[in-house]
Design a protein around this nucleic acid. Sequence first.
RNA 1: GCCCCUGUCGUCUAGCCCGGCCUAGGACAUCGCCCUUUCAAGGCGGCAACACGGGUUCGAAUCCCGUCGGGGGCGCCA
Length: 500
Amino acid sequence: MKTENEIRVRFAPSPTGYIHVGNARTALFNWLFARQKGGVFVLRVEDTDIERSREEYERNLIQDLRWLGLDWDEGPDVGGKFGPYRQSERLDLYHRYAAKLLEEGKAYYCFCTPEELESQRQAALAEGRMPVYSGRCRNISLDEARRRLSAGEEGAIRLKVPEEGLIQFEDLVRGPVEFDLKLIGDPIIVRSNGMPAYNYAVVVDDALMNITHVIRGEDHVSNTPRQILLYQALGWKQPVFAHLSMVMGKDNTRLSKRHGATSVDQFRRDGILAEALCNYLSFLGWSPPEGNEVLRLEELVKLFDLSRVSRSAAIFDYEKLHWLNRQHIRLLPAEKKLELALPYLREAGLAGPELSPAQREWLEKAVTILVEGVDKFSELPQKFSLLFDFEPENLDQEARDIIQTDSARKVLGAFIQKTSGLKEFNYELFAALTGEIKKETGIKGKDLFHPLRVALTARASGLELDKFIPLVEAGAKLDFPQRIKSCLERIAEISSILRK
RNA sequence: GCCCCUGUCGUCUAGCCCGGCCUAGGACAUCGCCCUUUCAAGGCGGCAACACGGGUUCGAAUCCCGUCGGGGGCGCCA
């Protein structure tokens, strides 16, 4: 089924921590590109930095990407015909091609110590030059290098780069890009500890995995000429490159914890929908041609266009993410809303581990009503406190002011009196009673309803009472970990407080 | 310090390549109004930008140069 011009892209994170939204955007753009073009999306784990890579991070990474709704056709967990997909398992490949480059005189051993290199770099910086490797070990013959190696010296392998010339390439988002070779020193391709350097490993992997399009962050543009040089030295066809601008925080510095949530994991915990996150991430540097901006993954696949991607950095806007999240939540069916809300309600102690059918039904109704206007699911328990918490002795100033007016006292007095003998309460009854009070006292509108709201909710604002009362009445009959007080109980409490 | 990239409403952006259709469009945020017994949601409307300075041109957001701002890079990190 593999055709000659099959498009193959890859996302190649290093497992050194939780996946950042900037990386998630890169993954998403690769995925959208692949899916739109009917191509292949490869996940490759770049774990050659032994110091920082950890196995659990790889699991998190996979979990986060799957949660986002991105799937890959080849990868460490699903296999594929170009594997292995973990760089740590491809070491022999890197060594094989390094040996070839060495044999052909395109690479050489370098015995300069890190200290020497560092002082050269400092010297160059001090003189206002670009620090470029001096090429001191360039002319050490392979034979001599081998002797020194077997004598116990440590050496790294460097690629020989022409001293003059231009490296040019066409970047799918940045247009034509060129680099002066004078500013590029011979890069290390294999470290003295035997591990491949990033620039080298990527090239070997991308080439051997037949990657046709490399879509990655802007921080890699300056690596690109070195990598192109490597493709040339190895006689491989180079892929098409596309470099995405960075994602910044409000103050125009790289997005970090200071700015708020930054990891996919954290957004998930906060109750941001995967679809909303993807929708938002796709808008960082890109925008749909026209029309609706609330888009699901499949719609993004249709509309996405790399050539429309902006070259300048984008600032991450939590407000817009939240708006999109609200829109996506709204599109969810009620049972899905409940399913997503339940963990937050349980954690807040509002729902037990087991739900009776009646409880489930009630919660579904309550969630559907209360989730309106909520930025993310983690805010839901707060909203639920309107139903679960009733503390008339702790009224805030606003609520207190509302019930302290003369007309409010009149309204409440009448209301308490009319409800005193009641066994049952419901919204119809409430409507009838307020009608009577209106007729008897002449008080209407806000002056009539606002005190009653405070009496029933102990708050100055909240749900519409025609939604609130049925919900509270039904909820009071159910056995929740934290009991909901019925309207009549609430009225009794408030009347005893008013008497004081 | 040096090299490269980038600069349209507060934010994401459309328009820029192929100058006039731009009194610069959309979305988020904000403000106001409507709806509503409050809030929210929703509907309607308002405020708000071509970084600056020079050119080129009959005409520039669009082309050229410079300045300034922002970002990225300059590793035996990825």
